[in-house]
Amino acid sequence: MIKAGIFGATGYTGCELVKILQKHPHVHVAFATSQSLAGQTLSDVYPQAPYLPLILGEAAPFEAVEVVFLCLPHAAAAETAVRALTAGVTVIDLSADFRLKDADTYANWYDKQHPAPHLLAEAVYGLTEFAREQLPGAKLVATPGCYPTSILLPLWPLLTANLPITSPIIADAKSGTSGAGRTPKAGTHFIQVHNNFAPYKIGRSHRHLPEIEQAMGWFHPDAPSLIFSPHLLPVERGILSTIYVNFSEQITLEEIRPYFTQLYANEPFVCLLPEGELTTLAHVTHSNKCVIGLTMSGSTLVITSAIDNLVKGAAGQAVQNMNVVFGIEETAGLI
């Protein structure tokens, strides 16, 4: 039995993680932390959540666990990761602190110097399907952001196939409000979101953009440029990304589909829809799936990709990564 600790258990992602791990056949949750609600239980905060006492982060007993999940704000996560790694504990980070490999890029996008730049090189970027060979035995895993997961999984087969793609690729993505986190913000109040649909951080403004571009560069050193346009949906959870890819040469859907079927044929959590079907949020909510649909519009490939931002976009993918790190069945706790 793997003993796990969860930092930041009262956020939406942290609570989702607790619910997954409580049902995991190989994991026991040894502790859960909350800086603002220590002394209460998780079920006091979320009535549907398991009964789990909440303690302060500084009181967390690292000696009692083999792995910790960090559902913390950026910078705070890195500081906690250093403490955990020093204690010999494996870290699965769900913040942004170890996703970017360059400390200067991190500083530019997160407005502060990285607290532990010496760890960036060793962190495994945990897009599980892409990183599966790097994950076994890893001590530090950076779980990707939700938007990047929904965009990178459908782009990976195309960019590694060396197809004649022209710039820019356009990713028009929509997220449910839980993606903004539990901390109240004016733009995510019910009265602002209900019966509304709004773009935000259009242009080169969203912090997930350098993460997406970094991974695209791993897929292909001359990857096309990207226009990323996020939107806020008036729903609780889910991300639907519509991605437009143009080609410099004539190409058909029959030529493109095999790149997806070959790469994802044996993947338990990536599903390619039959030709003619379009992806919806209903395909993925409350699951660890990424569902992809492919459509040609003239010379443009239109990809529809959906994930649950709290599961495949966060807690579920973190557990998937942990399963691979510890050498247990990848689907454990997730199906």
Rank of each mutant, 00 (worst) to 15 (best):
I2G: 00
F7W: 07
G8V: 13
A9L: 09
T13L: 04
G14M: 02
V18M: 10
P25N: 07
H26M: 07
A30C: 06
S43N: 15
P50M: 13
Y51C: 11
L56M: 06
L56S: 13
F62K: 02
V65P: 00
L85H: 03
D93I: 10
D102P: 04
W109A: 07
P117H: 11
Y125K: 12
T128L: 06
Q134R: 09
G137A: 01
L140F: 05
T143C: 11
Y147P: 02
P148D: 05
L153E: 07
N162R: 12
L163K: 08
I165K: 04
T166K: 10
G179L: 14
R182E: 11
A186Y: 12
F190M: 10
F190W: 08
I191V: 13
F197W: 11
A198C: 06
H206S: 14
H206L: 11
R207H: 13
I212Q: 10
E213I: 12
Q214E: 15
A215C: 13
A223R: 05
A223V: 10
E236T: 05
I243G: 03
I243M: 02
F247T: 03
F247R: 04
Q250T: 10
E254Q: 12
E254A: 15
Y259C: 04
F269P: 05
F269W: 01
V270I: 15
G276C: 05
L278G: 09
L278E: 14
T279P: 02
A282L: 10
T285V: 13
T285Y: 06
N288Q: 11
M296A: 01
M296G: 09
S297C: 12
K312R: 15
G313K: 07
V319E: 09
V324N: 02
T331E: 13
A332R: 06
I335G: 01
